[in-house]
Every structure is written in structure tokens, then in C-alpha cells.
């Protein structure tokens, strides 16, 4: 059985940690061995954040090698290209179309790359760019961006039964936000 590697990236505060928790939980429910690694501490302070999620029959290292990721799930466009080289040549980038400017860009000393989906395509990297943040705002809370993106991701993970995603969301999300997040997942699923 092959190992599936998903690299999640984004900006501290965007909710990548909950998303990686949900993926790991679903993979475990689906009967896989699972490992996940991420760095805490800076996560709330606007820095670049990354989580590695790996599942399969038996997983040794919690870290994905360069060229091993099946999917890079990016919460922000610039982060998508920062981590794209972790992908297999036939891997895929799924990115939220949001742009969050690093301090050097907002202060005018550096430029944010233009047209990131086009850069990916020019690099022969398969990519899906979705307005997940727009969808989340439409649903009334930009914080559910992470679950919208999970809905998109779920399409690409046929080895995980789609029922499991909702089961995990029900277990991991606080009751008062459950409805919102279930809607967010469906919205993401419809976007893909």
C-alpha cells in the first residue's frame, strides 16, 4: 500500500492546525497509520506555517521529503509557491486565492509575485485555485476557510470515505460552530 503525503501551508492564524487535525483523524478512522508534524509557537504571529500529514500502512518519519507530497494544500497564494517543491512531479497544488502580504511587501520593499496560478501552470504543476475565503465570508465567518478547503481536498482523497469527513467535523468542531462548518465543507466539495 502506498503512502499519501499532504503538506498544508499558510499564514499563522489561518486555521491550518484544525485542518491538519481533521485530515489525520479521518485517515485514522479509515484504518491507516498516520503521522503529523507541525511547528507551534509562531503560529499565532503571522509567520509562514506548515503541517505535514502522512498516512498509509506504516509511517516512519513524520516529515515529508521533497518530491514526496501528493498534495500541497495552501491557505494563501504566496505560501503555495513557497512549498510547491515538496510536490511529486505529478502532484497537485490546491490553493485558496487569498493574498496576505508579508511585512516586506506591505512596507513596499519587496513585490508580491503576480498571477501565482499562472506561475504554477508555467512550472507544469497541476493546480486548483479556489476562492475559499470568499466562500467562507459568504457563509458568514472567514474562520471556516479551513473547512471549505477540506471540502475541496476531500475530492482528491478517494481512499477516505466521504462520510468520515463529516463524522470528524462533528467530533472536532465546537457545537455552536458545527452547522457553519458542515455547510463550509459542502461548499468546498461543490467548489472542486
Amino acid at each position: 500500500m502506498t503512502t499519501t503525503n499532504i503538506l498544508l501551508c499558510g499564514v499563522g492564524g489561518q486555521g491550518t492546525l484544525l485542518a491538519s487535525n481533521l485530515i489525520a483523524d479521518c485517515a485514522m478512522k479509515a484504518g491507516f497509520d498516520v503521522k503529523k508534524s507541525e511547528i507551534h509557537g509562531m503560529a499565532q504571529r503571522g509567520g509562514s506555517v506548515v503541517s505535514h500529514v502522512r498516512f498509509g500502512e506504516s509511517i516512519a518519519s513524520p516529515i515529508i521529503r521533497k518530491g514526496e507530497a501528493d498534495i500541497v494544500l495552501s491557505f494563501e497564494e504566496l505560501e503555495a509557491i513557497r512549498w510547491a517543491e515538496f510536490l511529486k512531479p505529478d502532484g497537485i497544488v490546491i490553493t485558496n486565492s487569498q493574498k496576505i502580504l508579508p511585512m516586506s511587501v506591505s512596507a513596499g520593499s519587496e513585490k508580491y509575485p503576480e498571477n501565482i496560478p499562472e506561475i504554477l501552470s508555467r512550472s507544469s504543476i497541476a493546480n486548483i485555485c479556489v476562492d475559499a475565503i470568499g466562500k467562507a465570508i459568504e457563509l458568514g465567518n472567514q474562520k471556516c476557510l479551513n473547512v471549505v478547503l477540506l471540502g475541496v481536498l476531500a475530492h482528491k482523497l478517494p481512499m477516505i470515505d466521504s462520510i468520515l469527513w463529516k463524522e470528524s467535523i462533528k467530533e472536532k468542531v465546537p457545537q455552536k460552530l458545527l452547522d457553519l462548518n458542515l455547510k463550509a465543507f459542502d461548499a468546498g466539495w461543490a467548489l472542486a
Partner: peptide
Amino acid sequence: SAKLVSGVNIPVR
């Protein structure tokens, strides 16, 4: 691994 086309400056964060 996948390779990004050259000449793209990725500002640090």
C-alpha cells in the same frame, strides 16, 4: 520533485 520556474522571487514571511 516538482520545480518552480526560475526567476520567481518569494518574499520571506
